[in-house]
Design a protein around this nucleic acid. Structure first.
Lengths: 208, 208
DNA sequence: GCTTGATTTGACCATTCGGTCAAAGCAACG
DNA sequence: CGTTGCTTTGACCGAATGGTCAAATCAAGC
């Protein structure tokens, strides 16, 4: 079943349906909160049929997480050392916000995993993730040293971008509760706000 | 058992032990992920004994959430319309960050609840919480209109403060994984970074 | 249309979990 | 020291849950 080369149309279709359903259920209920019956129902399959495609509940979860980190890091990878510093960071913020808007379930799945202490992707965090962040932090530090952006801690800069963009996906319920029904879609104004926020932080001024 | 006036020393002690244990377990495992056995063990009690003090697992969870929102909002309540605008916001940020540092389990409990769609405190969000935020948003808007701080969307300003401060508690594992073992305590540098960030956003300049 | 392998399912199982209960233990007070 | 009411627990229960399996169904090539 894990041999990608040997997949019938039905297999591809059903595996996808299961992953979709699993994403929806895991994102809202967490790993332990999700049940195979819920996932099976959401996928339009019976429970044994679901287990014909994936050996266990955990396998579905792992399959989902596997692709996730990569997609999640793509926007950061695209941060170009040779580009315009402020523009590069702002573009990163924008891409990350779009990810939250377009893939809120993925964001919540990730949030759940981290909240639980990252039992399944812990290693990837201190490996892959840390390496990429270290690399980009060096780039940002270089920009600051050259006076092209203000002096900031690159790690906290990145954390703050993550925190604020993911907030709109993960805490969606709270955001909507506070904004009320009038302002149904917070993303346009959030984009503008974040743009202002990071622009004013990074734009270098009164160079000493 | 819910009559606070009639509490023996033993009752007060054990109820507190249960709430402590519940906080630890719920914060890490989420509501469905937590089991009564885990909580009982963490509290040093037997499961039936635990249910002698609280009628159900849900009752423990509710008791925990009950006090939480209030504590969580106190720092925002303290935002003083008559104080120095930039100073007031920065003080709010600092208090909120201290809350994350000193009560990370409470923060994660809250995060879990929101991620799950706020099934238990949803009403409080669109009630109490929204009212307070609306009130403070008006204050901030007033400051901006008077030219005492830069023009910003007060709601997104508040969201960003929440997001960034809670990030250090909720995504603690990720923060530590990225920073590595050298920078064990991120809070001092996070405080400095957030101070810079919001100061540069809010400080009014080139008044038109 | 028949064979073969892929797909689907009803029935079932072991374990876990929230919760109950009756009985035992214990502290305090007269 | 005996009574009374608070506290603790071992044994148990029913429901839910992850997972199994053998048998039934179906799709596709010959």
């Amino acid at each position: 079943m894990d041999n990608t080369a040997t997949r019938t149309r039905i297999q591809t279709k059903n595996r996808q349906a299961i992953l979709d359903a699993g994403l929806a259920v895991f994102a809202q209920q967490g790993f332990r909160g999700a049940t195979l019956d819920q996932i099976a129902k959401a996928a339009g399959l019976s429970k044994p049929n679901l287990l014909y495609y994936f050996p266990s509940k955990e396998a579905i979860h792992v399959a989902l997480l596997a692709g996730l980190l990569d997609t999640w890091l793509d926007p950061l990878r695209a941060l170009d050392a040779d580009g315009d510093p402020v523009g590069e960071v702002l573009a990163y913020v924008r891409r990350k916000l779009e990810l939250s808007r377009d893939f809120p379930r993925e964001s919540r799945l990730f949030a759940n995993e981290i909240l639980q202490g990252a039992p399944r992707i812990g290693p990837a965090l201190s490996g892959e993730l840390k390496e990429l962040v270290d690399e980009k932090a060096t780039v940002i530090r270089g920009w600051a040293a050259a006076g092209r952006i203000a002096e900031v801690d690159p790690y906290h800069l990145i954390f703050s971008i993550w925190a604020m963009t993911q907030h709109y996906a993960d805490f969606d319920v709270q955001v909507h509760a506070v904004l009320g029904p009038e302002r149904a879609d917070p993303y346009p104004s959030a984009g503008a706000y974040l743009d202002t926020l990071f622009r004013s932080l990074l734009t270098p001024r009164n160079v000493t």
